[in-house]
Nucleic acid binder design. Structure first.
Lengths: 165, 165
DNA sequence: CTATAATGCCTGCCTAGGCAGTCATTGCCG
DNA sequence: CGGCAATGACTGCCTAGGCAGGCATTATAG
């Protein structure tokens, strides 16, 4: 049984990890996209470009799984990137259902130009943190994320006995 | 000048605090709303109810500022809550522009029934964390949030000298 | 080989949220 | 008092994302 970090009778929204996560994530994204504005690029678009370039996910399905994004939305997002000649679609020969994505020169150029911006904003946000603190923060968020992923998997993956207690 | 926690040449999406924040926040919200589903309540709606009950924000404008939510969206959200008889609108006498919100009995009842669920999910997510670790996590996120709020304020609040360096 | 399931990508429909503009009310000045 | 900016709530318009369904292609079972 988990420790009772939060209790209903003493709960206040502001202290909640959920509140902190949401607020900081939101502000971080807003700040990054403000800097991205003149390039006309969304954070999501940039993340997709990053994943394609680094080979973390080069098909629509992979990107959706990796980023937990809707496949319909991903199709439309890639439509935009393609219409701006930032990525290219190419049907795979071995499996003609899948479409492999690759960056164009312009895509790589745009991506490269935006990476420093992201690092900059992240560093701004973490100003005053020591390297150890950042490591600790990353580690803790990682642990929490793993927890949540396991919980999500056990809820939907084994629906037979997951929700009953 | 901020420390260089992230550098363009060694940057990988997965290590990014932004990635961790977004993913964990998303999963947390999904999990809470899954539990809320049978009550037909959104996390945002619940947060609004919490704020109204605790007196943290009882007008639309206050809620928007506090939650950084769009005023149009907030109007519609409150429309829903009102149509379900969870909150009541009442024009203030002293300033007839503002509308004060208050929970109905049904609203309080629903709110109370959902608080344990939120605590439960939060505790699940933090399973394995010691009390000190949770405190540290809250503290670090709080610091980061403050940083970001200051940055946002200095960008938009004093545009004259905020963006130049 | 054939029928069925599964996978991948795409398309419509719906809702939530961001943005701009409107209207009523109040505060601020002359 | 009278005009004007500011504030608060609200309304349309647009876009992004979630959801369900469709089509093509591949895997699987018989």
């Amino acid at each position: 049984m988990p420790k009772q970090h939060y209790r209903p009778d003493t709960f206040h929204s502001r202290d909640s990890i959920g509140y902190l996560l949401k607020r900081s994530q939101r502000l971080l994204q807003e700040r990054i996209e403000m800097r991205f504005a003149e390039q006309g690029c969304t954070l999501q678009q940039w993340v997709v470009l990053m994943h394609v370039r680094d080979g973390l996910a080069i098909t629509v399905a992979d990107l959706c799984r990796e980023l937990r994004h809707d496949s319909g939305a991903m199709t439309r997002l890639i439509d935009q990137l393609e219409s701006r000649d930032l990525v290219e679609r190419r049907r795979t020969q071995s499996d003609r259902r899948v479409i492999e994505l690759s960056l164009t020169k312009a895509g790589e150029k745009l991506l490269d130009s935006l990476i420093p911006t992201v690092c900059d904003v992240l560093n701004e946000s973490l100003d005053g943190f020591t390297r150890e603190e950042v490591k600790t923060l990353q580690s803790m968020l990682g642990r929490m994320l793993t927890q949540l992923e396991n919980l999500a998997a056990s809820s939907s993956g084994t629906p037979a006995n997951a929700d009953k207690e």
